[in-house]
Nucleic acid binder design. Structure first.
Lengths: 153, 153
DNA sequence: CTACACCGTGAAGGAGCTTCACCATATCGG
DNA sequence: CCGATATGGTGAAGCTCCTTCACGGTGTAG
């Protein structure tokens, strides 16, 4: 019974590779990287956040967030504001330009979704989503920290 | 009609993230990295290859392959043999240990596939594979170099 | 007020990736 | 046969992402 499941895993892995390549190049065209964009995306969902909170949300070290924020700040996409009550912390805040950019990226994502899945028969699409949900459930149980759900960028 | 397709893309992206995390940690447990393993995997499929051929197959620069091979050679997983006819080129060859390791990894992959997709109803599984094939077709057309098929690691 | 915990960052380092320059070898055209 | 040109691999330099460790500034609990 290995055959069919292996075929499925193969497909998923290939999708992973191609999708990753597409994302990387698309972002590079706008001078962004995947890591920085992930942070930005999280910021859009959560609003101004502490670097510590961002580190936990992205599942990376606090030190790394410092570097990512440095880059984004250099690109004029975020600013570091003082935290109103905790003087140790800084609030990372997206700029207006960042919000405009995120808007565009969300639109682009919806367009990509239609491009990839729009041609599927509706019941096929539903089956795909349902199947992936089942797989995700098992995957989350398998991967440590799989429950940490930050909106998929 | 954006809703359903976006839901599908979300699922796919999350699977991507979790699967990537699983692969990275699993490999790290054996002292390997994704990039080096990809090269090794390609080597298993293609047999001893010149670094140039590997660079083209993986879609990375020749210089990068030098580094990856350095690492693998340091771990005793590949050796650099002189090319029989072209004295400029070197043939990267997997060691016996590497082939044993690749065997194990293939088994682990099959096991993972069963774990993730084994519980699905057979028709659901078939639908999933068919849907992903459709998506892959569009994706390959979308991504430059998407036709470059190296077995998915 | 004194521990202790916590936030952010400097320092150092590893992996992956790139481009540019360079040498050794191959190959092609005259 | 030989000079021009293309090709294979690597040193040098540099970027991003990521880590751990150390440390100073700040909050907090006893």
């Amino acid at each position: 019974m290995t055959g069919a499941t292996l075929a499925a895993l193969d497909r998923v892995l290939e999708v992973t590779v191609l999708l990753g390549r597409d994302m990387t190049t698309s972002l590079a065209a706008e001078g962004l990287t995947v890591a920085r964009t992930t942070l930005l995306w999280r910021l859009r969902a959560a609003g101004p956040s502490t670097q510590r909170a961002l580190a936990d949300a992205l599942g990376v070290s606090a030190r790394n967030v410092t570097g990512l924020v440095d880059g984004l700040a250099g690109a004029g996409l975020v600013t570091r504001e003082p935290h109103p009550t905790d003087r140790r912390a800084t609030l990372v805040t997206p700029t207006a330009r960042a919000e405009r950019l995120l808007e565009e990226m969300a639109a682009g994502q919806a367009q990509l979704a239609d491009q990839l899945f729009g041609g599927l028969a509706p019941d096929r699409l539903d089956g795909l989503v349902a199947a992936l949900d089942e797989v995700l459930e098992r995957l989350r149980a398998l991967v440590p920290g799989g429950a940490a759900a930050e909106e998929t960028p």
